[in-house]
Amino acid sequence: MSRPLRLNVGLAAAGVALILILRLIDNDYAWYTGYVILQYVLLAVAWNILAGYSGYVNFGTAAFFAAGAYTTILLTKALNLDLLVCVLAAGLVSGALGLGMGWLTLRLRGVYFSIATLSLAVVLQTLVVNWPYAGGSSGAYTMRPQGYAVFGNYSEFLFVLMLVLALGGIAVAAGIERSRLGLGLATIRDDERAAAAAGVPTLRLKLIATAISGGMMGMAGAPLPYYASYLNPEAAFSLTHTINAMAMTLIGGTQGWVGPVIGATLLSTLQQGATVTISSAGNLLIVGGVLILFVMLAPKGILGLIRAWRGRGDTA
């Protein structure tokens, strides 16, 4: 069995196992918690495609995520489309948004690029706040069906949908790492000028990465109106999404898809635990604290720690 096939089979098996475990638990809150954790896995994996692979730090995660959520709101309101169609449309809308943002900003480097991406969220939020059809500043409601197809419980359906999206996102990220695109992005991250001198079409590859990353973030946001039943601009465009996606990836490690998965799973599980045991306001405090610890003690994240430990083992 080839390595990519082995990975995809492994991902599918892990997904089935997760569903079975949660069915055994048979608690609505478990589906909710699982959904949030997987949403952050997808966001972190998507963020890492641009930031980790090509070195361009995107502060606009919330913009892509919210664009996905509002695509669902608008398509449901205007055409009463099925959520699955909305998810695909959200991927296209946020992918196109990524392409457009990339076209305007990818000639900038370093912190200038990051500031430009941050402004995208502000611009989009202002647009939505002043758009009554999308709910404006007071937000929009979504009626959740009782069940969906074979799923008697809609929470279970949302969990399975996010599970499929997250596993699909991981498969895409792993595929990029092995591909010519991944090689090109690595050269851009290491030395963009040398990459161009070696024939790498740097702008084109960055645009592809921005579109894929943005599309995945949009898909992560698409089911949000159904998950929350109510969506307002403050929640959709919250900087929390951006900070979480970044921090989770940096804590896990940016060297591959495994880092964001580990970081997002650990941190969002911790956050969910803190939400029910301490306070929902403690989420960002936890992220901030853990991030500071990692920046000081393990700047290459958990993956970096594991590799350093293995390296010591090899030389011993």
């Binding site: 090109g184 690595a186 290491d190 030395d191 990459a195 001198a197 070696a198 024939g199």
Partner: peptide
């Protein structure tokens, strides 16, 4: 049209072999 740089600019995350494959994979 190939060039080298005054200070070597290798792709540091890639192996030496992978460094040399880059212009061939993007020809």
């Amino acid at each position: 049209l190939s060039r080298t740089f005054q200070l070597p600019r290798p792709f540091r995350s890639l192996t030496v072999l992978e460094n040399v494959t880059v212009p061939l994979r993007f020809s």
